[in-house]
């Protein structure tokens, strides 16, 4: 086993242990903080699938994150007052079932990512960054100008949605639910990356011409990875909405896209658990440094700068060692 593996184990064991201690000492605030790390980390892991493994530097993943959040928010909104989302051509009401909400969020994100990817993956480099940003900003302004769902003010989820057998309104239960999803997604990503698909995807990142010249078209491989990445990020977005009891256009803004990229770069590009570490550090800084000074992002900037300059593989690269390709 590599050092990276053990670092990942320590992180993945440490989080629930910390949450459990917070649970028995009654520190709900800490549990929510840990849940926040996990949910943001999940989103980072989703982005990393496209960015780290596929080399697609998307500056528009907030589109999928916000989409997931809004699906949770809109479903809960209509379930709360028993109204209809659409009445024509068929009647569709809200739901307070998380499983259904997640399925819808993941499905819609897949469709959206397919369309965005179809267009933006024909470009690369700066153009790809700008096109993905443009699509996300389109969604952002759409949400702002849609008064039915709160417009600029966002939308509250008054009662956290339900999951069979889990008391989702209890902080520790919700933490465990999110943690289980994180483990499941990590497991899937790990399998994907080390399967034939992952080999082709990493080949496409390193040298698309090489891939073509051995007879694998890079475009469908990258598009598939882009869609999978968006599905994970949308799931994280839905959980984020539930956690905060609130969704807003800021979930769709380019700040959010930027934060996701920060998780990935800070934690380690192309490192499976890296973005989770990035999100943990980010939330710690935001909470504790942010408590001391409003200018905490200045220090985040310094850390990011140091990471980019001195730690090639992010924090995971620093403590987990170099990636091995035997």
């Amino acid at each position: 086993m590599t050092r990276e593996f053990w670092v990942s184990v320590v992180v993945l064991v440490g989080l629930p242990v910390a949450a459990f201690i917070a649970h028995i000492t009654g520190e709900t605030y800490i549990i929510n903080l840990l849940t926040r790390m996990i949910v943001l980390g999940l989103a980072g892991i989703g982005l990393n699938f496209a960015l780290g493994y596929g080399g697609m530097v998307s500056f528009g993943h907030a589109a999928f994150f916000g989409l997931g959040a809004y699906v949770a928010g809109i479903a809960a909104f209509h379930a709360f007052d028993d109204s209809l989302i659409v009445s024509m051509p068929f009647e569709l009401g809200g739901t307070n079932q998380m499983l259904l909400i997640w399925l819808i969020a993941i499905f819609l994100a897949a469709v959206l990512a397919f369309l965005i990817g179809l267009i933006s993956l024909r470009t690369s480099g700066v153009y790809f960054i700008m096109i993905t940003l443009a699509f996300a900003q389109m969604l952002y302004y759409f949400a702002i100008s849609w008064p039915a769902y709160g417009g600029e003010d966002g939308l509250s989820i008054y009662l956290r949605n339900e999951f069979p057998g889990v008391q989702t309104d209890k902080a520790f239960s919700f933490f465990l639910l999110c943690f289980a999803i994180l483990l499941l997604v990590l497991l899937l990503c790990w399998r994907f990356i080390n399967a034939r698909f992952g080999a082709a995807l990493q080949g496409a990142r390193m040298n698309a011409l090489r891939l073509s010249s051995i007879g694998i078209a890079p475009f469908p491989v990258k598009l598939t990875a882009f869609v999978i990445s968006a599905m994970i990020v949308a799931l994280a977005g839905a959980l984020y909405g539930e956690l905060n009891g609130f969704v807003s256009p800021s979930n769709l803004s380019w700040h959010m896209s930027g934060e996701l990229i920060i998780f990935v770069i800070l934690g380690g590009v192309g490192r499976l658990v890296g973005p989770l570490i990035g999100a943990i550090v980010f939330v710690l800084l935001e909470t504790y440094l942010g408590g001391l000074t409003d200018r905490w992002q200045f220090f985040l900037g310094l850390i990011l700068l140091a990471t980019v300059l001195f730690a090639n593989g992010g924090i995971m690269g620093l403590i987990g060692g170099r990636t091995r390709h035997d």
Binding site: N194, A199, I214, D326
Partner: peptide
């Protein structure tokens, strides 16, 4: 792998 196909296989460890 390119020759044999299966670049859209997601689970079996390739290495």
């Amino acid at each position: 792998q390119a020759r044999r196909g299966g670049s859209f296989r997601f689970f079996k460890n390739v290495w």
